[in-house]
Design a protein around this nucleic acid. Structure first.
Lengths: 143, 143
DNA sequence: AAGTCTTGTAACGATAATGGTTACAGCACT
DNA sequence: AGTGCTGTAACCATTATCGTTACAAGACTT
């Protein structure tokens, strides 16, 4: 199955907060741009907060960035929104037969390969920051 | 969510067929090593067949490899078992607001980044063949 | 030709995650 | 006190997975 859109929503939220740095980024405001429900936005900002990417406080309107734009990578967001639990992107079929040469070795053999594939993906995400996203949109808008 | 275990089962099946090249790899036989149901194995061998990786025929016991071990990459298996539909690993939140600078550009901005991350993952899978898996298990078994 | 074994598939259920929604408690500010 | 916001719990519809049963259809043996 595909990786949850929470990830893309998280990126959207952070980018929008950066654009709206002179305004108040309430969950209503963010939800309007993402085109979803404010409660869903609050769930995700809650995750971003737990990961130390943003600051939000109960009762106080608006979410703000907790770090510089250039210090938030897409990998940070990816991990913050729990898009892959236990950090295991690949689901390996459990308990193969120990009586079989292949069965008793297959997991140990493929897990490192799958991990390195996952790592390759994460490395790409690690090298893109929210600042890059913001700059790209600036360019597209001709700002 | 995690990537379906169909992928790891597919690898297991192909590896086991290679090991069992003097025997008959029926769905019962394969299911015993994978530790699952024969019907599930037949579903997956059906997918592998459609992708041209194996040969199976109704009524005839056993699945055989359609290519050399060194000509089957993990990417072939990954794509064969439809683990990611539409080839879109990342699910991007649909229909952001076109009224917002961020909303109307975010998709166009992040989709290429997510694609390149996906591509990095696939590249790793492309460089490992079933032959590599077989050799590794031979080594582990001291053969 | 009958019988047996196998594959191919349809159908169903249990489980889990997602995305959306409602509702409301609790906090902060006016 | 009143208003507005966040944090969260609860619930639902939808979807995919994995497992399982059941059976039709093909292939081979005797």
């Amino acid at each position: 199955m595909a990786i949850s859109s929470r990830f893309s929503v998280g990126i959207h939220i952070l980018t929008l907060i950066a654009f709206n740095k002179d305004g108040v980024s309430s969950s209503d405001y963010l939800a309007a741009s993402v085109n979803t429900n404010p409660a869903l936005i609050r769930k995700i900002t809650g995750m971003l907060k737990k990961a130390g990417l943003v600051e939000v406080r109960p009762g106080v309107a608006g979410t703000t960035l907790a770090r510089k734009l250039s210090d938030i990578t897409l990998l940070d967001v990816y991990q913050a929104v729990d898009v892959v639990q236990d950090n295991e992107l690949f689901n390996v079929h459990p308990s193969p037969s120990p009586k079989c040469e292949v069965g008793r070795n297959i997991q140990e053999t493929i897990v490192p390969i799958l991990s390195s594939a996952q790592l390759a993906l994460e490395k790409v995400l690690q090298h893109v920051t929210i600042e890059d996203i913001v700059k790209d949109i600036h360019m597209k808008e001709g700002i």
